[in-house]
Design a protein around this nucleic acid. Sequence first.
DNA 1: CGCCAGGCTTCTA
DNA 2: TAGAAGCATGGC
Length: 283
Amino acid sequence: MNDSAPDISNLGALPVDCISVEVGDFSLAQTIESGQCFRFEKLDENDYSLIALDTRLRLRQSGDKLFVQGCAEDDFARRFRGYFSLDDDYGEIKSLLAQDERLKTAISFAPGLRVLRQPLWETLCSFILSQNNNIKRIKGIIARLCRCFGDDLGGFYSFPSAERLAALEPEALGELRCGFRDKYVVDAARRFANEDISEHTLRAAPLGEARAQLTAIFGVGPKVADCVLLFGAARLDAFPRDVWVNRIMARLFPEGLPEFAKPYAGIAQQYLFHYARLSGEFQ
DNA sequence: CGCCAGGCTTCTA
DNA sequence: TAGAAGCATGGC
């Protein structure tokens, strides 16, 4: 609740601590609302509060300008360009994928969508909580998780470390009201804190090996594992299959994605997910 | 109310 | 070894 919005009373003039960043092939709204991240609030059209990397940002987009309040320019360049994948050439990636007409159509529904690069542990924990759940409730559970077990960073909370959660028993998560997922979170925290999960392996090992490490966690199956690899370990070849993606794949790609798309299967997946969900053609 | 949620584990034939 | 049932909770 108090984990959400900064003061936004002065919308008229640009606040002095507001920086502006040139962006192309990027839509703040499409990216932030694409189900990858959960610590955000929509304040207005093209206007969001986002807690990421121990920082609370206020973001507003107007055309190719992204206005950012809450971090300095050098800090944005050092940490948030990577977070938003702004140094990836999405123009290039999209024209590669768009060689396939079906992907071209999907892309046209959300041409500003980008895959985020989020911290590994936060991504793992968040997507465990996401299973068989809806985004509104996931956001509430994560807000309570941070308020209960994160550090106060001045009106908002850090994402709790794996070490902190590893020391708890599942019952201690009762206040989160995350249901049967409590024991999954604790198992993941313990394995992560123990370094049973190797970030290096997840980032660099063959996909099958990386998946195996994640699915060894109680409560992590193939879908959550691929979300973690894609959103939390920069594995753009990971391909999370949820009900929507399964549906659209059965209809449009019964033989699977074209070979040339596979290095960017995860990005293709995001366009397809968005298209399947919002076009209304795949219910 | 009842159905469903960016699934996974466990039980069953 | 595939397919269905059960799982906590709450949004709509």
